[in-house]
Design a protein around this nucleic acid. Structure first.
Lengths: 358, 358
DNA sequence: GGCTGCTAATAATGCGCATCATCCGATTGA
DNA sequence: TCAATCGGATGATGCGCATTATTAGCAGCC
């Protein structure tokens, strides 16, 4: 058992070649017209196998190569709690993909946090360098920070659709629009007509997409759109009663459990009197919470797909690797902007309109 | 906005000094009798502030320094799901601590997985090198692998108490023993006498500690210990009925919800007929699951404390830093082996003995 | 025999940083 | 007055690797 790291030089000595030759063999080929005979190649490979050599990622990175390390930058601080249930699934998917890719993950927890959101400062940006590329995840909009990334040509992928500037930012998002459309269709098919949208106004992409889906679907069915955009849960419940909705679609960051409580307090039962469809998983879980109907955002899949994409980008424009044959095809435009379907969730909070509405 | 990384050389040029001087200023002092005048120091610091310089972790590491990166190695693959709920809280704590320490986290997801458990191979061990130190987490016992770590003097900390060989392995664990003792005390105080232990036999530390606590407490109260160690939940429920237990303490990896179902199927209600105390959080959550009484393992705190400890170890025996003044005190023996208290959980599955027992 | 053209490999260089050895000028000691 | 000492800082070196420039050997050809 060697105490010291095993280096390419060690391997080279064992194989009776130079360190450079080992490096060439490892990197699969010949940037500058260098050739290695098959025999030598084998000798080197054997030596590697015997010594159990593995590249030192730090050195690889320093020398301008790839370290098989991918970064994960989370805008919102993963704390306090509520968001943990939110990010968890993404990370699960990411981790899974990382495992399959044989890559390590670097979590940029060192970035400074200002009132709950991490900043990607110039300094932080320098630290990204250890990773071959980086996943960005979370709402956010610090224009300048992104510009920096684009300028430096550092490979990165957003998790979550990017509307503005989307053309230049690679992302893997969820299809909130058609997910929402389907919920409305579903309600209409059951006989609902007075369908409200419950959720705060916002300029974040998910909100924009949900509203768009709601608008489009209601219009397609010739129904009137009605929005309830109140901070207060009790007030929201009151408004729902007031408006005589038979069904509402609700943005998941609103506390659906509490909303149901407030409705119950007003003698309104879910789903008997009002159907409630959630546009995404509830952000705040509760013990004994109910099974919400609606759609779910495929967070794990998003995480995984994003990492795969990142990995491809890295391979593409990372250090100019072998121009030779079996190189994976370059990333296509379509791949750069993926939108994943949000599967419906059956749940138990949807039913045909109650008596009052008939 | 510079396209290229800003290096110490850039800073040096701006401050009118040599790169070495910059390095010295950054590392706080003088390994080899080198002194820097206060004036120069300030000039360098200013230049750093202006340029927004941040060290390249890869280079730091390669040159034998610290990169402010701490590794996390998880023995059990974080997948499939069940374990996700288990590791999640640890990671939450770790991440929180990392944030406070201003450190990045490296997840070693590249390690090969063999039937569900990650191996820490010689190759993998080499990859650890990018991080200044490493957290190990999960059951496991590959002696040789650990030996390697000890040999190389690489800083690491286990999450979870290590019994065997514990003297040499730094860890942060949970006090399962006294947690269990308290549960028995609690039951006895309520009037219970026939108290069973439900859980599979095992040689993992938590199991050993739970059993020890159970044994000690029962003995202290002059009661007879009775173990139910069956794989099958239905059989377990049957045995509980058969033995006429008025209360049981249950290891959390057993599916308590299903157990309750099976008991109900036999006309036994929890807690009316049988009190059930969980020795740790249930591993498998269920929607609408009940509030279990017992104790909880402070996983987040364990994660955080472990990272703090690791950070101290790194500072201690990491690259021989400044021997000068305000260096934090060396890690004490006591710190190397921490056992955290497991707070009681009130819950709703405990009550005085039912009619049958009186 | 000198030339080109080709294959197979090596030497040399630099990435950004920590550190060791060295150097220089100004005191101090004898 | 010259050596010894000390504060203050620089040059050189190497970490392990990727990559470029260069060399060595050899066949073919005028």
């Amino acid at each position: 058992m060697p105490r010291r790291r095993i280096t390419q030089t060690d391997v080279a000595a064992m194989a009776g070649v130079s360190q450079a030759t080992v490096s060439f063999v490892l990197n699969g080929s010949t940037p500058a017209g260098v050739r290695i005979s098959e025999e030598t190649r084998q000798r080197v490979l054997d030596a590697i196998r015997i010594t159990g050599y593995t590249a030192n990622p730090a050195a690889q990175r320093l020398a301008g190569g790839l370290a098989q390390i991918l970064g994960v930058f989370t805008y919102e601080a993963t704390f306090p709690r509520p968001s943990r249930d939110f990010y968890g699934p993404f990370l699960t998917g990411i981790e899974h993909a990382a495992e399959r890719l044989g890559v390590d993950l670097l979590l940029f927890t060192s970035a400074p946090v200002e009132d709950g959101r991490r900043r990607l400062t110039r300094e932080g940006w320098q630290r990204l360098g250890v990773a071959d590329g980086c996943l960005l995840l979370g709402q956010h909009e610090h224009r300048g920070e992104l510009q920096h990334l684009l300028d430096t040509n550092y490979p990165f992928v957003f998790i979550g659709k990017r509307g503005s500037d989307g053309g230049r930012l690679p992302y893997v998002g969820a299809d909130y629009v058609s997910g929402t459309v389907r919920q409305i269709d579903r309600l209409v098919a059951l006989g609902h007509r007075r369908i409200g949208y419950v959720g705060l106004r916002g300029t974040d992409q998910p909100t924009l997409d949900r509203v768009e889906g709601y608008r489009d679907a209601m219009k397609a069915h010739g129904l009137t759109t009605r929005f309830v955009e109140l901070e207060d849960t009790a007030a929201t419940a009151a408004e729902i009663v007031e408006q005589r909705f038979t069904a509402v679609v609700v943005a998941p960051e609103n506390h659906p459990e509490e909303l149901a409580d407030e409705l119950a307090a007003r003698g309104v039962r879910v789903p008997d009197d009002v159907s409630v469809l959630l546009l995404g998983q509830p952000h705040h879980l509760r013990r004994g919470g109910r099974a919400w109907s609606g759609f779910s955002v495929p967070r794990e899949e998003m995480g995984a797909r994003a990492l795969y994409l990142l990995s491809r980008l890295v391979a593409d424009d990372g250090p100019r690797r072998d121009r030779d044959a079996r190189r994976p095809a370059a990333v296509t435009e379509a791949e750069l902007h993926q939108v994943l379907a949000c599967p419906d969730v059956e749940g138990a909070t949807v039913a045909p309109p109650g008596r009052a509405a008939r």
